[in-house]
Design a protein around this nucleic acid. Sequence first.
RNA 1: GGAGAGGUGGGUGAGUGGCUGAAACCAGCUCCCUGCUAAGGAGCCAUACGCAUUGCGCGUAUCGAGGGUUCGAAUCCCUCCCUCUCCGCCA
Length: 424
Amino acid sequence: MLDPKRVRNQTEEIARRLAVKNYKFDQAAFEKLEEQRRTLQVRSETLQSEQNKRSKSIGKAKAAGEDIKPLLDEVDNLKTQRSEAEEQFKVLQDELNNFLAGIPNVPDESVPTGDSEEDNVEVRHWGKIPSYDFEPKDHVSLGENLGGLDFEIATKLAHSRFAVMRGPLARLHRALAQFMMDLHTREHGYTEAYVPYLVNADALYGTGQLPKFEADLFKTEGEKPLYLIPTAEVPVTNLVSDTILDAGELPISLVCHTPCFRSEAGSYGRDTRGMIRQHQFDKVEMVHIVRPEDSEATLEALTGHAEKVLQLLELPYRVVQLCGGDLGFAAACTYDLEVWLPGQDKYREISSCSNTRDFQARRMGARWRNPETGKPEPVHTLNGSGLAVGRALIAVMENYQQADGSITVPEVLKPYMGGTERIQ
RNA sequence: GGAGAGGUGGGUGAGUGGCUGAAACCAGCUCCCUGCUAAGGAGCCAUACGCAUUGCGCGUAUCGAGGGUUCGAAUCCCUCCCUCUCCGCCA
């Protein structure tokens, strides 16, 4: 949610920057709503104030033994007017709230313009794209060959876009997650978190998935529906919802390994082969709750932490800054990490690190008491994958494949693989 | 799942229809006093929104949530949510 005051006072500026995100801000509609709101609010509050005064005087008159009948009639009249004005005000406020809640976050000035992935800007790259003296296979072929990676059996159990892993590949998958968690907690100063995999609508509203993107989520049946988390960002960031934090509690840095569930509505036909795009995948997620002045530096650090995973795994990657059109609803600035996949002969997203600034904080009521002002102010929240575990598995398989179809185990994963050096 | 108790400000905890946005205490902040320490004194100390804005400000809402009764509700009624205790069940 954008700061309503800011939208009011810097309407032009907001509209201009939202345009970078290909969002057309309806300035006229907003100004009209805002003016109506003001009129109705003042009217309804004034009437309420009058009524309160009368009611108080009734108490006094009664105590003094006076006739209160005329006062009662007066109040009765006020009441009718008031409830009418209140009704209108409520309707309008809902309208205005929905309007504001539907506006995406304003992109940073540094965000390049553009419509799609094509317009993202490479910031840096790391590692050397490998060359092979054989035709590199993709992870599906490698998995087929090795056994232990099965999509058909998963379809039997659930649906398409699921996978079953068994044996050393399943272990490699687990090893990756463990390695990442250990790295972030031991070397990068994160606190490990364990959270619910089902969350309520409020939490999803807080991080920005609702109300606009319900179609991307899996929802449970029943009177009080819950949603499967699309990312740990949702429960972990919401840990500070409706909270006023002391300055001394910041920054908060959490890392959490969870499965993630996405309906992938609207992605029919995309990445249908293999594990790239699944309804269920594991991810290690890093979340930061910081003072506003620290968020820019934190985004750089956070991105660096995700990069470190790839570096230690010795996987070539590049960092791109997302253009306006590719930026998520809640993000003001996002770096994607794209790992090199020999099987596809291209870079594919494996991590996304975003600064949402005060956007999520405002929606979820996450604040800190700023010692300089003494007032509660929204914190800044950031999140980034470190990394998507399923995609990391793919990357390891494809980059560590040998001519015979076997896969050597990356050095840093060996301790997690019980001495296994090679999967064959 | 069964039975009971309870949800009030950062914390403890008063408050059964009007003068209570809320006593008191603790924590915190400011000032005074005191040569250290300890103690003492005065004051401040919820949040959101709106209006006004040179400044003090003024108004509305909020005592788990929603609805109702009433001129008036933290206080009465209804529904829901949550927490705690005991029993049952269970990883």
